[in-house]
Design a protein around this nucleic acid. Structure first.
Lengths: 228, 228
DNA sequence: ACAAAAGTGTTCCTAATACACCCATGT
DNA sequence: ACATGGGTGTATTAGGAACACTTTTGT
């Protein structure tokens, strides 16, 4: 109950720090990728971790997440969803840090990550080739991915990861990358075209003669789909 | 990134308190109910709220939730799921309190809640007749209920709310109470009996001659169902 | 010419839904 | 006798899964 007073012998409010960590997913070259940063300071110096940062005094955690991602990868207005909160007293080896994790979806094409501050590197990693991460971030990443899968099975939100114009095969590869299973091409096309938020453009990809049809997204139809 | 050092101008770690609040769901007299407690102190004195308490220095939040519920309703080993974390800087009128919410499932029959400490009352409320709660707890409750619905659609976890022996009609009423819609009796029975974790007992409810068949749960079959 | 990827329809099966009558008990 | 709630089966439909061949383009 917000700890104003406590029930009986309730331990007193602790002064744990609170951070937001983000599993930023992107899709490029036919692979689902996650943005990782490499620490240049202890603890876990040299380890890759999920980008994150401390909650400010006047900030909600979601704002913390957005600020961190803006500072780090220069991206605004991304799709952001809270996943879970991790509070093991010893998850951080130096002092107590509670963290809340988010997953985010971005189009990697536009945003080259830059390592700043105490980071030595920032780079996209294939989700299938993620190294051992610092802290409990392998767990956070796994949980975030799992939540993304759950959401994707409900609603077609993956298009935040695709460029403006994309082919159905690209969309399928994306779904397969997220879900971790391969899908039947005909069934996938039929199902996805049954929605009315995919618009066939008359354009073809630059440079090629024929090639696959490019589609674009009807944002408002997608919104309607997500809400209705 | 656990805030050991901060990216550029990141605000310094704040000293927000952290609490765990629980939406405890029970089922009795054919109604889905939620356990609420009434505050006897400011802020929100006289208001009903979700039971909760401050995270201890050596505690994970889930342990906080279990401890609070043990102290309040004397129940152990309940089904507990994290829902979300709320961090609006002004969600608590006095000082900054971040809270993580859980939902819990209990059998109300066994556990009469007791108001302790700064509480003037503790009581089960019909979910359909929840008053205006203190803090942002109406929101927490709504989100917790929503998460419970989601989980229930995936897996048959609602049996934690039923007594040892129960009729199929009771189970159906429970499902209807959680999902907020009415179900076809025959379809419900067929679907639920298709699982193999419901065991028909030869007993009938005490006092009645014939009456409906009582079922009990095969815990291990349910576990198998939930995992496999 | 050959290899690689795009495009297209049908069949099958499972799961969800809708629906009506008989029986036993308690009043 | 009547009202209430328990118990049972079938027909329809919608959605998901499986599956093969033809066309175009790039090498």
């Amino acid at each position: 109950m917000d700890g104003t007073l406590n029930i009986r012998v309730t331990p007193q409010t602790s002064a744990a720090a609170h951070t937001a960590d983000c599993a930023v997913f992107g899709f490029s070259k036919g692979e689902l990728r996650v943005l990782l940063v490499q620490r240049a300071v202890e603890p876990f110096s040299g380890y890759w971790v999920l980008p994150g940062g401390a909650m400010g005094d006047e900030e909600r955690l979601e704002e913390t997440a957005r600020r961190v991602l803006l500072e780090l990868v220069g991206v605004r207005d991304l799709y952001l969803q809270q996943v879970a909160t991790y509070s093991d007293p010893v998850r951080h080896p130096v002092r107590r840090v509670v963290t809340t994790s988010y997953y985010a979806l971005v189009k990697p094409e536009n945003h080259t990550p830059i390592a700043r501050g105490y980071l030595s590197e920032a780079a996209w990693h294939k989700l299938t080739e993620v190294p051992e991460l610092g802290f409990d971030h392998n767990r956070l990443l796994q949980d975030a991915h799992h939540r993304l899968i759950q959401h994707l099975r409900d609603r077609p939100l993956a298009f935040d990861l695709l460029p403006e114009r994309f082919t159905l095969t690209e969309a399928q590869k994306l779904y397969e990358g997220i879900l971790g299973e391969s899908l039947d091409r005909r069934n996938f096309r039929r199902k996805i075209l049954a929605y009315d938020f995919l618009i066939e453009t008359s354009e073809k990809r630059a440079g090629v003669k024929g090639g696959p049809i490019l589609y674009r997204l009807d944002r408002s139809a997608l919104e309607r789909e997500m809400n209705g």
